[in-house]
Simulated scan of single mutants.
Amino acid sequence: MPNERLRGSIAGAGLTVERLAEIVGVDPKTAERWVSKDRIPRRAHRSATATILKADELYLWPGLLDDAREKSASLAEFVALYPHRGAVPLHLWSSLMTSAQDCIDILIYAGLFFTDGTPDIAKTLIRKGESGVRVRLILGDPDSEAVALRGAEEGVFGGVAARVRLSLTHLQDAMGCPGVEIRLQSATLYNSVFRFDETLLVNTHAYGAPASQSPVIHVQRVPGGRLFDHYLSSFDKVWSRSVPAMEKGTV
């Protein structure tokens, strides 16, 4: 049975199967089988195709829900669900920051609990950068409509922008230091993401409620799993459209 969802998404993106194959880097006959025979591509090709078509993998290939191996790997990724951010053990944040050896990626609007609650956070990030850890932080642009809207939805109005500016003050000394990049973005923030090497904490968001009241998902990267890469892909998309905080002159 052909995959009509994939066929329609390709057409909707203004592409042909042959052009999609060229972009993804597979043989056109392989891509044609994805459509005509509903073959499920390899994981890397699925991810690339979903990104190009701006669609979710599960929408394009519902059969993934029946892939026992992928379900098993994704279940293995799941470590814990905390009912709200305050339920996350305090030592977990600091231990993950301290133990990170390769990368620290953080996507927040203000994240004041983190910047204000981590002693000497700028110095810590500077040391991490100097030791070879890649540090990427994305905060909300305090002058953006998205941040203003979040403040209005939470009933604090300018409070979110004020918290962003305070976080930027805590981070100021680390701006421009080797290995440390701090950027601002103005997109809607669906989740706050805290990545430390192969560990991920995702603070979900709910309309009208501050992030502190929403659940946190603890994920550990596992080969073949989907959750870690799914949220990391979201981080990378926001990173690609963000701008260096120093260029904005907000601090």
Score class of each variant (00 low, 15 high):
residue 40 I to L: 08
residue 41 P to Y: 03
residue 43 R to W: 12
residue 43 R to K: 09
residue 43 R to N: 09
residue 49 T to I: 00
residue 50 A to G: 05
residue 51 T to S: 11
residue 54 K to W: 10
residue 55 A to S: 10
residue 59 Y to V: 10
residue 60 L to C: 06
residue 63 G to E: 07
residue 63 G to Q: 05
residue 65 L to Y: 01
residue 66 D to H: 15
residue 68 A to T: 15
residue 68 A to V: 13
residue 70 E to I: 11
residue 73 A to W: 12
residue 76 A to R: 01
residue 77 E to R: 03
residue 77 E to C: 08
residue 78 F to E: 02
residue 79 V to F: 06
residue 80 A to S: 13
residue 80 A to C: 12
residue 81 L to C: 14
residue 85 R to L: 01
residue 86 G to A: 04
residue 88 V to F: 08
residue 92 L to S: 12
residue 94 S to I: 03
residue 94 S to L: 10
residue 95 S to W: 02
residue 96 L to M: 04
residue 97 M to A: 09
residue 98 T to F: 02
residue 102 D to A: 12
residue 110 A to Y: 00
residue 113 F to N: 12
residue 117 G to F: 01
residue 119 P to G: 02
residue 120 D to L: 09
residue 121 I to D: 05
residue 127 R to F: 07
residue 130 E to D: 14
residue 130 E to S: 13
residue 132 G to K: 09
residue 135 V to E: 14
residue 137 L to C: 10
residue 141 D to N: 15
residue 142 P to N: 05
residue 145 E to S: 05
residue 155 G to A: 01
residue 155 G to R: 01
residue 155 G to M: 00
residue 159 G to T: 09
residue 159 G to W: 03
residue 160 V to T: 11
residue 164 V to G: 04
residue 168 L to S: 07
residue 169 T to Q: 13
residue 170 H to G: 06
residue 171 L to E: 00
residue 173 D to K: 15
residue 173 D to L: 08
residue 174 A to G: 07
residue 179 G to R: 12
residue 179 G to V: 02
residue 181 E to R: 14
residue 183 R to M: 01
